[in-house]
């Protein structure tokens, strides 16, 4: 068990192990997405007040959850890289950034499209929407800072600090709808107490949430493997890989 983690810390072993996991994660992700989409788009009943427009939820909510989850992973990986000088943690952190940014963008855009018919506005500067937009800027900031710094070690450290400082935004996003008056309504699922949503709608939502997590796992490993090859390009095992390719 300990050897597993020790091996995982070695870029060469990570490359190999991740390569084996990716197809399985991808298959599980695809299966759950198909199930979730069918349940959500076809089987689940319409909402009593939002009609069929609420079905945007099956993309919007999992995207929003992912935008927060990935940021936390990125910050924690960054911290581990900073404290333990672990290369792999640095790789996971920077590989996560564009994926997190994608989900944040998706949450904002689908939210906007949903808001127009339901609220009557494409955008409002309430605390929930504004703090989620700031999250997007944080992700983009991490990506920009990393590419601006020549040495990857230093780049990883600088972006880890930025990510860690930005963590304060995560509880702000989540509690914004409770701390301040907002147009965005309060939590339906992520709260203490029973979810205020019909089971036939809740199940596809949760299925999509898991599917999105599996998507992140698949894609972050794909990105991380490329980043590892980049960093280790002078190593013998990479040279051999290139030769046989």
């Amino acid at each position: 068990m300990l050897r597993f983690f020790h091996q995982l810390g070695s870029p060469k072993h990570f490359y190999r192990i991740a390569g084996r996991w990716i197809p399985w994660l991808a298959a599980a992700c695809a299966a759950l997405m198909l199930i979730g989409l069918y349940q959500g788009m076809v089987v689940a009943p319409p909402d009593y007040q939002q009609g069929d427009s609420y079905r945007i939820m099956f993309i919007h909510v999992p995207s929003a959850w992912m935008s927060l989850f990935i940021y936390i992973v990125m910050a924690v990986a960054g911290a581990i890289g900073l404290i333990w000088h672990m290369k792999l943690a640095e790789v996971i952190a920077i590989s996560s950034a564009p994926i997190g940014a994608s989900f944040t963008f998706l949450a904002l855009v689908t939210g906007s499209i949903w808001g127009k018919p339901m609220w009557g506005a494409w955008w409002v500067w309430d605390a929930r929407l504004t703090s989620e937009l700031i999250l997007l800027f944080l992700y983009l900031g991490v990506m920009a800072l990393y590419s601006a710094v020549e040495d990857k070690r230093t780049a990883a450290r600088a972006t880890a600090i930025l990510a860690i400082v930005g963590v304060v935004n995560i509880p702000i996003i989540h509690y914004s709808v409770e701390w301040w008056n907002t147009l965005h309504q309060g939590p339906t699922v992520t709260k203490f107490g029973a979810p205020s949503i019909d089971l036939r709608m809740l199940i596809p939502l949760l299925v999509m949430a898991v599917a999105f997590k599996l998507f992140y796992a698949t894609v972050v490993l794909m990105r991380a493997r490329v980043e590892v090859l980049q960093r280790e390009r002078n190593a013998q095992w990479v040279r051999e890989l290139v030769d046989i390719s």
């Binding site: 009609g51 427009s53 994926i99 949903w114």
Partner: peptide, 30 residues
């Protein structure tokens, strides 16, 4: 979609583009 077709389907279309882009990007980089 109960009259909300434009909103629902554009959301799903954008989601598809974003997901596909995230899969294709590392493949091309590699």
């Amino acid at each position: 979609m109960g009259g909300y077709a434009v909103y629902v389907w554009s959301s799903y279309a954008i989601a598809l583009v974003v997901l596909v882009a995230n899969v294709v990007a590392p493949i091309l980089q590699r």
